[in-house]
Design a protein around this nucleic acid. Structure first.
Lengths: 285, 285
DNA sequence: CATTCAGTTTGCATCTGTGCAAATGTAGCT
DNA sequence: AGCTACATTTGCACAGATGCAAACTGAATG
């Protein structure tokens, strides 16, 4: 499928005759004719037909020309100079993410600002997990979830399973079951159904010494030796203070998603961000 | 500007090397190289650069590749068969218009249904002038206005000036001024500021025998000889029962617009409708 | 430091696609 | 009916784009 032939088709639709099309494109009549024919063999359908000496688009040809028109509309966005393209990579980019992500990927974020000095990053972190992208509170969201919001588009950058971890000092104690250890769980305000269900079944409530409402707090408290906690393996394994003290837990798997609105999906800044992060997160995949 | 070269650029971005790109496209390495170079001279900027033996896209090249990607996304909509394209021209098309338009352009509407038998037209006419396109009460609106709603897109199909017309029997009476004739005016519910202001200045209220709320009613009543009325010239001149009894009135000019939502602007049915009507209305322009 | 590998560049013969010009076809006009 | 204007089709010679093969470059490896 040759896009150049679609250009010819579009020009022909506008000009109406081979002659005018040829003049417009600065090529010969015969070439126009033959390019349209080649398009037909590519597409497998008749695009023009000869009605008493004049060529007119078939209904099919008109449809094809329509999408060519849409393509042209996109092509207008071609940066026409280097300056033009640089402008696309400047401005503000608001990113909604968890502090946990900042904690583990500060280097990656930093590398981004070095690589694209004209882009001002605004990190909207905090404990509320759901920053509404649809309300434009951020351009991009980095979310940890099993399934992202359907109205958003993006990619799965990291996959992680979960297990119970604890500081070495705790792990080295002797204990008959995990229920004997001190634990760190979720605050009631956090809607963590899977975790809550598991904890209820395996851990006596009195053993849950801390209830926190953010993943980063869970992680830091666990590293500080406050108790055992269910943590994502990809991250926990990178800490030399933590030890895995259970098998992999099933049903906990989540993914790290890079997400944006449909409208922004072709935005240069957003794409630069996605490319940078998707590549940078490869070691975690 | 050759779109085919953009295709090559896009493929190169995805494959990463000339070699792989060449295989993917089924052409030779050297051709890939030269096509990219030709793109550079077309665009006037460097698209790839040689960093220690490997070719990588420049920042500018990445931007260009992005729009190529957007073009590709559009190209996916290319109907791949005649059946495919026919499907695009079937279904329902709701049109909001004035009865006046139906009255004068019934032939044109009819010709449309003959030409596109698979499109079921739904005409939403009536006296309320503003059918909300943004609420999807209709796909297309044919509106008579000076300026269309800014959120809508479309084209100006007919331009008309206005003058006072009356049935020949009335026009043939002897009268000193237009104020002596019986008149047809707008109902109070119709927001016709320009007309109301003119009438107030030139016509005694008691002479306004009829007040109607739709343009078609104005037209038909005038043709029936009920009184004088301000009518659009393009239409009034086509009636052999009506005579122009004033100069052209200034400040009354309006246009007939074909309008749709931005989202639907590339829809096949809508475009077919626009093309058909814009051409069919040429004699009125 | 030589060797290999993966990639890009360049020179040259070839072939495809292009432009030109003549032929052909259709509608409209006198 | 013949003429004109405008349009498409076709045959042929040629230029430019293509593929091939060889030369070239840099990085990694032992």
């Amino acid at each position: 499928m040759n896009w150049a032939d679609l250009q010819v088709l579009l020009a022909f639709q506008r000009e109406g005759t081979l002659q005018k099309t040829a003049v417009k494109l600065g090529i010969d009549i015969s070439t126009v004719s033959r390019r349209l024919r080649s398009l037909e063999t590519d597409l497998g359908s008749t695009v023009i037909e000869n009605v008493s000496g004049r060529l007119v688009l078939t209904s099919y040809g008109e449809q094809a020309a329509r999408t060519a028109e849409a393509m042209e509309a996109e092509s207008e966005n071609l940066p026409r100079s280097v300056k033009d393209s640089e402008k696309l990579l400047s401005g503000v980019l608001r990113i909604a993410l968890l502090d946990l992500v900042v904690f583990f990927h500060a280097d990656l974020i930093n590398a981004f600002t070095v690589r694209y000095p004209q882009i001002a990053l605004e990190l909207v972190s905090g404990t509320t997990r759901m920053h509404s992208l649809t309300r434009r509170e951020a351009d991009v969201a980095i979310r940890i979830a099993k399934q992202p919001d359907e109205t958003l588009v993006g990619m799965r950058a990291v996959h992680s399973k979960y297990a119970v971890y604890a500081h070495t000092s705790i792990a080295n104690q002797s204990y008959a079951s995990l229920g004997e250890l001190p634990w760190i769980g979720w605050d009631a305000a956090v809607n963590a159904r899977v975790t809550d269900a598991w904890m209820e079944r395996h851990i006596p409530t009195r053993q849950v010494r801390y209830r926190v409402n953010s993943p980063i707090a869970q992680f830091l408290m666990t590293e500080a030796g406050s108790g055992a906690c269910i943590l994502p393996i990809v991250y926990a394994e990178r800490s030399d203070k933590l030890v895995k003290i259970s098998d992999v837990l099933s049903g906990f798997d989540t993914d790290l998603w890079l997400l944006t609105h449909r409208d922004l999906r072709r935005n240069a800044r957003v794409q630069a961000f996605f490319d940078h992060f998707y590549q940078g997160l490869a070691p975690f995949r």
